[in-house]
Design a binder for these strands. Structure first.
Lengths: 183, 183
DNA sequence: CCCAGCATGTAACGTGTTACATGATTAC
DNA sequence: GTAATCATGTAACACGTTACATGCTGGG
């Protein structure tokens, strides 16, 4: 059985865009899906072997003995559509920043300020990352059928980052007010 | 050893606001921290026993034999401050919605539309939940020292939900445009 | 020739969830 | 008395990460 249908979905999906090696798969997931998805090495290879055994992908031995390209079979495409249609399984939230801020009285106002400033900086960085991705998508016409969907995820990344920045600015101001009123 | 320093932090933090039973702790985490944190039963009780063994919390036998209230000791408060100061450990992203939209070509435009509409509805629900929490905080003056920090997390929840709604509206419009241009 | 990067895999570990099991108390 | 809820706990399982192990290939 596959490690999890989630990993199966990500792997089949990525290979459906373009056949590639397991190594390239990992890089694609990190670089392209990175802002909303992640898979580790330890998941990818067992999943590929499993998918191959079930006939959902085929391995085409490349020039080198240990360098093979994986491609999705018609069965694999069917399975992918099935997986994509399954209900989204909610991940239990675990936001370390919020947990620390919630107990901000124990942590101290200054440390809170630093955490929020770091979050703001990170959101700015993510915003630039979305720009990079958007440029990459625009510059590769061979993916024009996929591009409109990819733009949805990039837009989501942008909205999220912008919201984080607005919240951070508001929160830093609120902490300043706390300082003033406690004097 | 504690199951994880993350759970330890959440448990010590919650008990630092107010001593309570393990059962109440679980409800507090679900109802109050629920929009950014979660702990399961199987984590809470072992962690409480462990914290007790290490002298970070004390158990005060209540009226009933098997109903005891846990309170943070001075050592526990020190440990909590230490934990809160630790760097935030990033969770690998796993957004099932984004994964499905990214492979939207395989899933189909209509299914994408439904997913986005459901996300929008969920964000609306979360927005109302934030209103409820804000009212709850405003109505309980005994937590006035904590309230300013709690408001930061509520504000974050609001910003995130509002960003999701704006993104959803934009994305639904983009999908309509796709339909139009493909005709 | 050797190093960096490509490529594939496995085993151990930690963590967290789920399901199960049990019993006390309170409201009807 | 009995059902619902409060309360506490454990064991099995699933999942995912990390670290380890191995070898090929191309460029300097």
């Amino acid at each position: 059985m596959a490690r999890s249908s989630q990993t199966e979905m990500a792997v089949l999906g990525a290979l459906s865009v373009e056949p590639m090696t397991g190594y390239a798969l990992r890089e694609a997931i990190r670089d392209v899906l990175g802002h909303f998805w992640s898979e580790s090495f330890g998941q990818i290879y067992p999943t590929l072997n499993d998918l191959e055994a079930r006939g959902l992908v085929v391995r085409t031995g490349g020039a080198r003995a240990r360098s093979s390209t994986f491609a999705v079979t018609p069965d694999g495409a069917r399975r992918l559509r099935e997986l994509l249609s399954e209900p989204i399984q909610a991940v239990p939230p675990r936001n370390g920043l919020m947990l620390r801020l919630f107990f901000g009285r124990m942590l101290g106002v200054d440390a809170c300020r630093e955490l929020i400033a770091a979050t703001r900086a990170d959101a700015e960085r993510r915003l630039r990352e979305m720009d990079r991705l958007a440029a990459e998508v625009a510059g590769e016409p061979q993916y024009s059928d996929d591009a409109p969907f990819w733009r949805l995820t990039i837009s989501a990344g942008r909205h999220t980052a912008e919201a984080a920045i607005a919240w951070a600015d508001e929160s830093l101001a609120a902490l300043d007010d706390m300082d003033r009123s406690s004097r």
